[in-house]
Structures are given as C-alpha cells and as structure tokens.
Computed example of a mutant assay.
Amino acid sequence: MFGTAGYYLLEFTDGQCYIGESIDIASRLNQHLGRFRDIATIRVRPEAKSNAQTSILDHKRLLRLRERRLIHHAQESNLLARNVNEMATLVGESKHLDHVIPDAEQRRWLDAPDTVNRADSTTQKFEHSQFLGAADNFRRFASMSESVEMLQLIGQYLTRCVPYPLRTEYQSWSVSCLPTTRSIPRRLSCVSIAMTETFVVNIDPTSGTIGGFIQVNDAELFSAGAASELAFRRRHPHATLSVANYEESGPGQTIIFANSLAQLQQLRDDVAVTRAAATTALNIMRKGQSMHRRSHCPQLVAAALDLPAAL
C-alpha cells in the first residue's frame, strides 16, 4: 500500500489525464474510481516524508501548491488534462456553459466575437430590490468626469471579448461598480468571469490617474513568440506585462497593465489584444458560473452597452 499523502496521475483510455493531490490518497482514488469509468492507469507519487509539526491545513496548502506546478508542467508538455482549476483550457464538456451556449455557437463566437455579440438580442430581467446598492454606486460612478470614457471601455470589452454578454450576464460573469476594496490602485469597475478578474478600471488615489488592466491568452497574443511580443511592445511602449496568477486561468496567461485611460483605449483598439482577451474569457467562462453576483451592477452594464436602463 502506498503512503497516505502525496500526488497521483490518472491516465484515461482517450489519452487524457487528471492530476491530483490528497492527504489520503487511497480514499481519494476510491472516489475517482467511482466517478471515472475509463481509467487506464494510475500513477502515485507519495510524499517522501511528512512533517509531524505541520498542521493539516498548512499541509493541504503545500500539497496544492505543488499540485499546481505539476498541472502547469503537464500543460506546458502538451498533455490534455481534465482538471478544471489551473487549466488554461477546459478539456471536454462545460457543465455550465454548454447548456447556455451550445459548443458549436461557442466556436462560432470565437471566430468573430463582436459580430456575433451584436447579433444576439437576448436580455435578462433583474429584480429592482436586488440591486438598490448597485444603483447608488452607479450614480456616483456616472457623476465622475471620466464616466463616459470608462463606460465606452467597459462596453467595448463586453462586446469584443465576452461570449454573448446579454445571455451570460450575471450567470457567467458580473461587473462591479465602485467596489469596497482596499486595493491600491482603487477599483472603479471590475469585470469578473467565474472567479477571475479579467478587465479592471482603477484609479490612483494620490494622482487621480485612471488606468487598469486586461487579461489575455499568451498563445493567441504572442503566437509568433518573441517577434509577437516585440511587435506588441512597439505598439504599446508604456504597457506593463505580468504573468497572471489566478488559479482558474492556468499557465500561459498575461495581465496587461495600462497607466492611463488613453493607454486602455489603445489596448481596446488593438485587435490582437481583444482577440487574446476573448480567448481567455471563453476558456474561463467554460469552467463555471459567476462567483461575484452580489457585487453585480446591471445599471452599469445597461449604460455601457447602451441598453434600456436596468431597474
């Protein structure tokens, strides 16, 4: 019998795999055997030694950090894994999105996101009482001198980068308005898909400068490797690139920071950037439903997309 804690790899008959960790491998594998009927091989790597002084919670955190590296390494080695978190692309069916948008429509959308989105007239109704707080926040947002430019940016991100925004609003993604966070720079608006912040507009409380960031897919934006990155830096010399550190995104994701509204607008008008952002948005949306519905502001969505005012 193998050790209690450690890591395991399930290999399936279709060539896919699943990577996991557990403080009780035997019990966890029994669960998988009851769930998956096409397991071909099980590989186990027990921990060499466990620290008796480490709490169960800290032990679990350590296992998850190492599991994360293993999943990222598998993707970088071109393995197809059925894991959801830490994956850049969800393999197989989406339990959530496929019921809202059939797979064929998802593929059609990715070919021409803005064209397909403009043709989709599906809207959702919201209860007035559910969003009273959001309405007050939106009134304060709309009173800002830069509100028109910010609304245009948010609207064009939704139109160009978010799958069927009118159909998936609230269920798959949400947008906050003046959220009560302590982050610096301070958030003015944040589009979150599932659990991941994908497009943020923020303000530096000291200088009053408004900027933000957008998350993109590396393989899409930098398809030609170093040459693509060099071309991007020439187009956007003031933008800053940083590796995305969100669990849902998986490896191969970059956050592009802009230090002004003008820089955000330049990113918005760059087809390569919006295409890469659309790829990221679809991949994350396939993983699950919105986890930030409490902070959703339908009034901001209506204004950004030039829809009838939300109740």
Rank of each mutant, 00 (worst) to 15 (best):
A258W: 13
A224Q: 15
M291F: 11
A276E: 02
K287T: 07
A276Y: 06
E229N: 09
Q289C: 12
F232N: 00
Q289V: 12
Q289Y: 11
H292S: 15
T280L: 12
M291W: 11
L261I: 07
R268I: 00
L282D: 03
F232I: 04
M291G: 08
S228M: 05
G252C: 01
A281N: 14
I256P: 02
K287M: 13
L261G: 04
G225C: 05
V243G: 03
L221N: 04
P237E: 14
A277P: 05
A272E: 01
L230Q: 10
G288E: 12
G250Y: 13
Q266E: 12
A276R: 02
G252N: 05
Q253G: 11
F257D: 13
T254Y: 10
S242R: 13
A244N: 14
A239I: 04
E229V: 06
F257K: 00
A239P: 08
L241R: 06
Q263N: 08
V243N: 06
F232G: 00
Q266F: 04
N259D: 12
A278D: 05
A277T: 07
T274R: 04
A258T: 10
H238G: 08
T274F: 03
P251M: 11
L261F: 10
T280H: 13
A244L: 15
I284D: 11
E247G: 07
G250H: 05
A244T: 07
R275C: 02
L282Q: 07
S249N: 13
Q263H: 10
A227W: 01
